[in-house]
């Protein structure tokens, strides 16, 4: 059954779908049924641009361990970049 655990954030960035690159404006993060991953529930991230229609989407479906590893790795890389003075002030 669907967990209905979902959050949405606004963001700026770019994503590449089958149709090519497009500007990202939102991300949906959920822990619910995936469409492709062979799991009952997955950590799903859908990067979208709602203004460009429902098909403007780049998605990943991860198991919980992979999602935690990804989140920790993102924070680690950002910390290294910040320590090196590479982040904009």
């Amino acid at each position: 059954m669907c967990t209905m655990i979902a959050e949405q954030i606004k963001l700026e960035g770019s994503g590449k779908s089958a149709a090519g690159w497009f500007s990202l404006r939102q991300a949906y993060v959920s822990y619910d049924h995936p469409f492709h991953a062979p799991l009952e529930h997955a950590l799903n991230i859908d990067f979208v641009n709602e203004a460009q229609g429902l098909g403007a989407r780049v998605s990943v479906e991860l198991d919980a361990a992979a999602a935690r590893s990804l989140a920790e790795t993102i924070l680690s890389v950002l910390a290294q970049a910040e320590a090196g003075g590479h982040l904009p002030q």
């Binding site: 669907c2 949405q8 619910d32 859908d46 229609g53 429902l54 098909g55 989407r57």
Partner: peptide
């Protein structure tokens, strides 16, 4: 009411809205 696209695209939108 969530809009139109592939069934999966629409379901992603509804999933993000909590059903």
């Amino acid at each position: 009411r969530a809009g139109h696209g592939t069934p999966e695209d629409v379901a992603v939108k509804v999933r993000a809205e909590g059903g």
